[in-house]
């Protein structure tokens, strides 16, 4: 056969390389998807068992405040009122992000708009180090510093949503800051030049142009911060008090989904209602991280300009 024809008809070396490359990269990505799916299916099957096998009421789970899964209520169904924990989780998360956002935006503005290259690098190291401190250590500093501080200045025993929020504030700060920095950097520099050329002061430019343009990105940063706060366990557990009671305020001992989950899981037996109910809490955590991600997607779509 004509060697040229043969060469054209056969797959070239490059095509084969390409195929191998595709297989490698596609299989990596499929592996990740598989991992996520299996975690979801696994947690969901355990979490749903509370309602299918143990006959707990879904309505109670979301609206009742009585959490003692091993006991049964008057209607013969297990008492799985998760409302106190859900409230607690949302309480600490929202409050932590509320504290963290102004700090994150301020720091990010300083890093992108004001600081010299040195200052920027320094702050970058600072935020990265904050991420590197293990949550156990945060928990103990919270116990030694934040709890007494809250007790003396705000009252109560010191354990509660406020203390949890203070600890989480520091923990989510780096996440929100670095994502905010990314979104501020993404604002085209000619926006700023145009504004400054019109005679606006630096602050006017920051406030009316840069921040507005970066708004969707900043919102995304805040939501990722919320996702991080929502899932944090060890540190919050030490300062929030872990009482499965409806929080009476920011200063009363309450609990979060993660704190009840970590505390109870070793003391319950797999397959029992006590254990399944904890997996239902895990399922709520999982669904919430899905919701946070959908929110980010939605903001990204809305904010495109």
């Amino acid at each position: 056969m004509d060697p040229i024809k043969k060469k054209i008809q056969n797959k070239s070396k490059e095509t084969r390389q390409e195929l191998i490359g595709k297989i490698l990269s596609y299989s990596s990505i499929l592996l990740i998807v598989l991992v996520v799916l299996s975690i979801f299916i696994f947690v969901a099957s355990k979490g749903i068992a509370t309602f299918t096998q143990n006959n707990a009421s879904l309505k109670d789970f979301f609206f009742s405040t009585d959490w003692s899964p091993t006991a049964v209520g008057k209607d013969g169904r297990p008492l799985v009122g998760a409302l106190p924990m859900i409230t607690g989780s949302f309480g600490v998360t929202l409050l932590a992000v509320l504290f963290a956002t102004p700090f994150a935006i301020g720091t990010a503005l300083y890093m992108t708009e004001i600081a010299s290259k040195k200052g920027r690098n320094f702050l970058q190291i600072v935020t990265e180090l904050l991420v590197g401190i293990p949550s156990v250590v945060y928990g103990f500093i919270g116990l030694n510093v934040v709890v007494p501080f809250v007790r003396e200045h705000f009252g109560g025993s010191g354990y509660g949503i406020l203390s949890g929020a203070f600890v989480l504030f520091v923990m989510v700060l780096p996440t929100v800051t670095s994502l905010t920095v990314d979104s501020l950097r993404a604002v085209p520099s000619h926006y700023k030049s145009a504004s400054l050329a019109l005679g606006a002061t630096e602050w006017q430019t920051i406030y009316k142009v840069t921040l507005r343009a970066a708004l969707p990105g900043i919102l995304t940063a805040v939501i990722f911060g919320m996702a991080r706060a929502f899932g944090e366990a060890l540190a919050v557990q030490m300062v929030i008090g872990n009482a499965t009671l409806m929080p009476k305020g920011l200063l009363s001992a309450s609990s979060t989904l993660t704190s009840v989950l970590t505390m109870g899981i070793g003391n319950t037996v797999m397959g029992t209602v006590g254990n399944n109910a904890l997996w239902s809490l895990a399922l709520v955590l999982l669904v919430m991280s899905l919701v946070f991600n959908l929110l980010v997607k939605w903001i990204g779509r809305k904010g495109r300009f």
Binding site: L143, V147, P148, R151, S157, Y159, M238, A243, A253, S255
Partner: peptide
């Protein structure tokens, strides 16, 4: 009654030492 709960001896030690009235 429902109260604060802690799962480890260590954290209880710590909290009772530090919290007035605990």
């Amino acid at each position: 009654m429902k109260a604060q709960e802690q799962d480890s001896n260590g954290s209880v030690q710590h909290m009772v030492s530090e919290t007035p009235g605990a």
